[in-house]
């Protein structure tokens, strides 16, 4: 049910001077790798950072249902149809789970969803790209979920307990999705010439946006420093991006597909694959709302929300009637 706020704290405002002892003790717990739990004391900025990160993550799961949902009715076999529906359902489950984790920090799901619908909150830039062919479903599973896993595995050790525990479950499902996506790509790349072209075209279109999923280069990142200190973030954007590239290059080889980067080369000294310049201007534009599908994605979420309003009202009205009856009895 679409609940009202749980555990809303009275707005104390940000205390200018947080208790110095508490802050020191808090950092000591973090440094000792202890988990912070909802009722523990935490600095207001820690709470705010996590609320933002977890809710953005939840929004990404929910908006992320749309590009893949675009192929639910056109999946090419019953097995693929069932797998895709189960996958999109998993994403929805992740969203719910993450909203619940964010609620433990004192913001209601309703508030957080309103931030998404008003355009105030961000979600992952990748979901503002269109799914044009069936191969995009393979590419999303392989690359987008692959990139998400790179990001999320370290989050299983995040200092905030509810988020860390949510990530353990989410990562298990994402690994499964990634294998499914890769298997779609494998089938296509071993299929007819048209299917192989479809797979290559999808890879060409999704590769660079996937590299952008890790966020701006370290030199330009706004949030990393405190997040690292608080052990919310364990690796930098560039480190995670490099891990992803290193893992993906051999996978593309097995598929017999080429990555759309003429500058890609193995650095013999470090063993890392060096990649070409990312178009950060494109990233900025997509984040600013100018990606190919930003408007459609938000419009679809708003439409679902607006058209569902009478249903949610009916459920509340019915529940109220039942309570009134119980009281009268």
């Amino acid at each position: 049910m679409y609940t009202q706020a749980l555990n809303i704290r009275p707005d104390s405002g940000e205390r200018q001077l947080e208790d110095a002892d508490l802050t020191v003790r808090f950092q000591a717990r973090i440094d000792a790798e202890e988990r912070i739990e909802p009722n523990d004391w935490m600095p207001a900025a820690y709470r705010r950072t996590l609320t933002r990160q977890i809710s953005q993550h939840a929004h990404s799961e929910i908006v992320g249902m749309l590009p893949e949902g675009n192929w639910l009715t056109r999946a090419p076999s019953l097995r693929r149809k069932a797998a895709l529906l189960a996958k999109v359902q998993d994403e929805c489950g992740h969203g719910l789970y993450l909203y619940a984790a964010a609620e433990t920090l004192g913001s209601s799901r309703e508030e957080l969803v309103d931030q998404l619908l008003s355009g105030k909150a961000k979600y992952s830039s990748i979901f503002n790209y269109p799914t044009l062919t069936w191969a995009d479903i393979g590419a999303i599973g392989w690359l987008v979920d692959g990139a998400a896993i790179m990001n999320q595995i370290p989050l299983c050790r995040c200092s905030y307990g509810p988020y860390a525990r949510a990530m353990i479950r989410v990562c298990k499902e994402e690994s499964f999705h990634q294998r499914q996506g890769y298997e779609i790509m494998l089938t296509l790349s071993r299929g007819t010439p048209e299917q192989k072209d479809m797979a290559q075209d999808a890879l060409n279109r999704w590769w660079w946006p996937c590299l952008m999923m890790f966020g701006p280069p370290d030199a330009a990142s706004l949030h990393s420093d405190t997040s690292t200190l608080w052990k919310i973030k364990r690796f930098s954007n560039d480190e995670l991006r490099q891990k992803f590239v290193d893992a993906t290059v051999p996978q593309a080889r097995i598929l017999g597909l080429s990555l759309p980067d003429p500058e890609l080369r193995l650095d013999e000294e470090t063993g890392h694959w060096r990649y070409g310049e990312i178009d950060w201007n494109e990233f900025k534009q997509v984040i600013a709302g100018n990606g190919p599908c930003n408007r459609e994605r938000l419009a679809a979420r708003r439409k679902a929300h607006d058209e569902g309003e009478w249903v949610r009202e009916a459920a509340l009205a019915y529940a109220q009637k039942q309570r009134d009856k119980a009281l009268a009895a």
Binding site: A86, K303, A304
Partner: peptide, 28 residues
């Protein structure tokens, strides 16, 4: 399955997908 991502609340996105999956499984 046409509802998936567009339901009145996330819980119904889950429930409708769930029923859809059952039915597609029966069909298979």
């Amino acid at each position: 399955s046409e509802w998936c991502g567009h339901a009145p609340m996330l819980e119904e996105d889950m429930a409708l997908a769930n029923m859809g999956l059952d039915l597609i499984g029966q069909a298979r």
